[in-house]
């Protein structure tokens, strides 16, 4: 009876041995996935978790295209059975804001710019210079150049008549 059990145990071992040989350890998979991510830009700082060949990736990728490519990048690694992509795409950096001058320096600058052009008037409110009156085209070009140089939010000339 004892012999019989040993035989069963032996054959069981023999049967399972080839299966064991083809299996890659989770730790090795993790290392390989991390290496694959490190060599691809946009994947820095991602966390890799492997359990029985099932890979879970968490963290932030820089772009949507990087997230799209993540699945194929990771599943190409040897020993990876499945990929769960739990990453999020980083919010894009806010666009640079234009440099707008405060109303006080704007008003002062507008006074200087209009001094030689009595035909037109301008008011400043919340960065917007509103110009009214009548002016020759060549003079208006000079005035507009000067006004734009003051860093206004906008130069509203809808009430201006250019001759």
């Amino acid at each position: 009876m004892k012999k019989m059990l040993t035989a069963i145990a032996l054959s069981a071992m023999l049967f399972y041995l080839p299966a064991c040989k083809g299996k890659v350890k989770d730790a090795d998979v993790k290392t390989a996935v991390e290496a694959a991510l490190a060599s691809t830009p946009g994947y820095s700082g991602l966390m890799v978790d492997v359990k029985d060949g099932a890979v879970t990736i968490t963290g932030e990728v820089t772009e949507a295209s990087a997230k799209t490519a993540l699945q194929s990048t990771v599943s190409a690694v040897k020993g990876v059975k499945s990929v769960l992509d739990n990453t999020t795409v980083m919010a894009p950096p806010p666009p640079p804001a234009p440099d707008i001058a405060a109303d006080d320096p704007l008003t002062k600058g507008v006074t200087d710019a209009l001094k030689d052009h009595p035909g037109i008037k301008a008011t400043v409110n919340d960065g917007v210079i509103t110009v009214t009156g009548e002016i020759k085209a060549a003079d208006w070009r000079k005035v507009k150049m000067a006004l734009d140089g003051l860093k206004p939010k906008k130069v509203d000339a809808s009430g201006l008549k250019v001759k």
Binding site: P98, A137, W140, R141, K144, M145, D148, G149, K151, P152, K153, K154, V155, D156, A157, S158, L160, V162
Partner: peptide
């Protein structure tokens, strides 16, 4: 550049650009 600005927006009346090129 100001000539081109004038061509695209005649007499700079649209109010959609602030060109501060020194």
């Amino acid at each position: 550049l100001w000539d081109m600005y004038n061509k695209i927006d005649p007499n700079f009346l649209a109010g959609d650009m602030v060109m501060n090129v020194n």
